[in-house]
């Protein structure tokens, strides 16, 4: 299974975590940041990223502002107050899941 498929379920969490760190980012910047942080191992496809961004925005977790950059309009996303709280909860949830997943993937031999 490709990493893209595994990433899909955690995409909203990844986006929110990045925005927690960076304050505001635009779509292309998010894809590049993930690529950079994972040394190219993870690749977020735009086909998955934009619907996620738009969904989070509609749910009130993200807010946007536009800026003119090199004669074109750039749309920046940032977390709302609700988004900040949601990001923390989603990251904690994912971390807990990874701990459990680790237990399943690497079970310690039982002593008894």
């Amino acid at each position: 299974m490709s990493s893209s498929k595994l990433l899909k379920g955690s995409l909203a969490t990844i986006v929110m975590r990045l925005l927690e760190e960076q304050e505001k980012m635009y779509g292309y910047e998010i894809t590049q940041k993930v690529k950079e942080l994972t040394a190219g191992e993870f690749k977020i496809t735009e086909g998955a990223l934009y619907p996620t961004l738009h969904k989070l925005e509609a749910e009130g977790f993200l807010t946007t502002e536009t800026q003119k950059v090199d004669n074109r309009v750039r749309k920046y996303y940032s977390l709302t107050r609700e988004g900040n709280a949601e990001a923390k909860s989603k990251v904690a949830e994912l971390e807990a899941f990874l701990v459990q997943l680790q237990k399943v993937l690497n079970p310690k031999p039982s002593l008894g």
Binding site: T45, E46, G47, A48, Y50, P51, H54, K55, E57, A58, E59
Partner: peptide, 26 residues
């Protein structure tokens, strides 16, 4: 390459629908 990353024509259609649905919800 961009079209491929966007999931081809089907992916772009999905993006379009998702955008409209997001606005609809708001």
């Amino acid at each position: 390459t961009v079209l491929k990353d966007l999931g081809g024509k089907k992916g772009m259609r999905k993006i379009l629908i998702a955008r409209h649905q997001a606005y609809g919800r708001v």
